[in-house]
Write a protein that binds this DNA or RNA. Structure first.
Lengths: 338, 338
DNA sequence: TTGTAAGCGTTATCAC
DNA sequence: GTGATAACGCTTACAA
């Protein structure tokens, strides 16, 4: 391995002069500098990241932590993050799994974006207490070293529920996310709020897991108890699609017998038949905002919590108003976007 | 930041004793050891990765490099890789973009898996020459420090072409990947080989890009020149789906007027109507094999290049044999899997 | 069993 | 402008 020591020896100068030249300091003559640079190139010199990180106490690398690599949500999110990071001189690495938690406390990375419920909030607060900088995308956490960039779950779930109610539905199944999911809890809160205002709306909670299989299981229940047209609000698209798949094997028709609405607008939801009604938001913006916030708190700049706005995407999985037999009175039209 | 020095001071021992205790060496008394461990815990000691990496000249981190984060192929691939890495005491990070190329030469990671054509082969060979360990998934490269784990592109493309020919097709469009793509080139080679054997099969090459948009553009050409039923072999599913989308806007019906076959069996291809015929392979296995090979070459163990086998997945996007009017004589049935 | 000390490859503070 | 030199936090001969 070739180090600045080797360059110094070959150039007949001291290592400090080499370091200065390599870092473009103006304390060194152009002549010496270019000679050093030439030798460095000749020797294929590459700086050692560990040594630099050790000395400078920063790695210029940011990490984003995901529960798993398979989510359909992540492409644009990561893309947006990377763009911002690179523009600001940071590198971005994507990590997943318990093992990689160490990256932050061991100072391999300068900060972390968390979209991974396997991180306990307690753990994150501990890191923050030790001075590590964090942006959370999947929970609320109050700490000077932690910033939040959250989806407007409440608006999204409200949009979804009101859309179904406007179609005249009075029986609505709600398929939740896994226990402990912040997004699920937030969305459920909005569901409760909406239904409290609507005396004639009955809603039934079905426990899900944010995976296709959860949607399939929910479908079983719905099929079993089916007597009249119902609506289902799946708290994410993945489950909505699982539910639709299972329903497609029966005589129950989506958008007629069972209206379905999801959340996330993943790419797949464009392709299922009929097109899934869902809640959309800019994943790219979510990512870029998260990265921006993280870099700001690392730089010691003050930041406020941010919110990602959502809209409703229409589709065939909810029957249109013109087809409906009954329509609730006194319901005014609502703007589709919050 | 609390270091072993702080622990040593508080425990009234030397830093080397602390180091030994922390690393579970049996050179130190149980008594001293447990005292040190207790103090370490009390002080919230976390080792510094940079220091350890600098000293040990290894980071126990492996990197996988992707062209972008959005591909649908990657979920299982990364999952498989991570499982193997973690089982072997390595951490896995996912990187993308020119900036992160430095991770390998700067020794931030102990090795790299490459599925990213933005790495020049020359660059990789240079790294390998300097002793860095690499596994390539997207090219052939001969170097003692480089191992290949490649898809059996040739078998896949042959399977696809023969499937179409068996349906009686004599005019086949082939939509390629982007210039310089290894997978595309390999698949094209097989296409040529198959068609050379089949005198009565005409094939037309359309330049694509492995993106949906490429498939849409190819559709334009096909629509424009359409006179009789044809087949299209898109060299990946992404393009096949783009093509189907565009075709769906016309009177041309997939699986009747235009038979379509893709490559990769991405999740989406299950959901398009009709189900896309495609070439499948285990992405998880691809990933785990790549990780295994990388860890082996890092350990100095000898390895051979590996190949990932493929199979054909049937679906509605190619009309079934029973519906066809003409059938080529003398064609024997072929095994679907190679 | 424990301590001393050298060294990993940098950066940065001083002198000169 | 350039050069010693200390320091970053850790591991590991070697000495005691």
């Amino acid at each position: 391995m070739v180090s600045i020591k080797d360059i110094a020896k070959k150039a007949g100068v001291s290592i400090s002069t080499v370091s200065y030249a390599l870092n473009g300091s103006n304390k060194v003559t152009d002549e010496t500098s270019s000679k050093i640079l030439a030798i460095a190139k000749e020797l294929n010199y590459v700086p050692n990241a560990a040594a630099r990180t050790l000395k400078k106490r920063e790695s210029k690398i940011l990490g984003v932590f995901l529960t798993d690599f398979s989510g359909d949500v992540y492409g644009d999110l990561l893309s947006g993050m990377k763009t911002v990071c690179n523009a600001q001189g940071y590198d971005l690495i994507v990590c997943s799994g318990e093992q990689s938690h160490r990256m932050l406390p061991e100072r391999m990375i300068d900060g972390a974006v968390i979209l991974d419920h396997t991180f306990a909030s307690k753990e994150l607060l501990q890191y923050a207490d030790r001075g590590h900088k964090i942006v959370v995308l999947d929970r609320e956490l109050d700490h000077p070293n932690i910033n939040q960039v959250l989806l407007d779950n409440k608006a999204g779930a409200t949009l979804a529920m009101e859309h179904l109610i406007e179609q005249g539905h009075t029986k609505i199944y709600v398929v939740t996310g896994p226990e402990g999911s912040f997004d699920s809890a937030q969305r459920m809160k909005a569901v409760r709020q909406v239904t409290e205002r609507e005396a004639n709306v009955e809603w039934i909670e079905i426990e899900g897991d944010f995976e296709k299989s959860g949607g399939e299981q929910a479908a079983e229940l719905i099929i079993r108890d089916y007597t009249e047209p119902v609506a289902v609000f799946c708290l994410n698209d993945e489950m909505a699609i699982g539910l639709c798949n299972r329903l497609a094997e029966t005589d129950l028709q989506i958008g007629r017998d069972v209206d379905v609405i999801g959340f996330d607008n993943i790419e797949l939801s464009k392709y299922v038949q009929p097109r899934l009604v869902t809640i959309d938001y800019s994943k790219r913006k979510w990512g870029s905002l998260a990265a921006e916030q993280l870099i700001k708190i690392i730089a010691g700049e003050p930041v406020d919590h941010e919110r990602i706005y959502v809209t409703l995407v229409e589709g065939g999985s909810v029957r249109s108003q013109v087809q409906q037999e009954t329509r609730l009175p006194n319901r005014h039209e609502r703007a589709v976007s919050y």
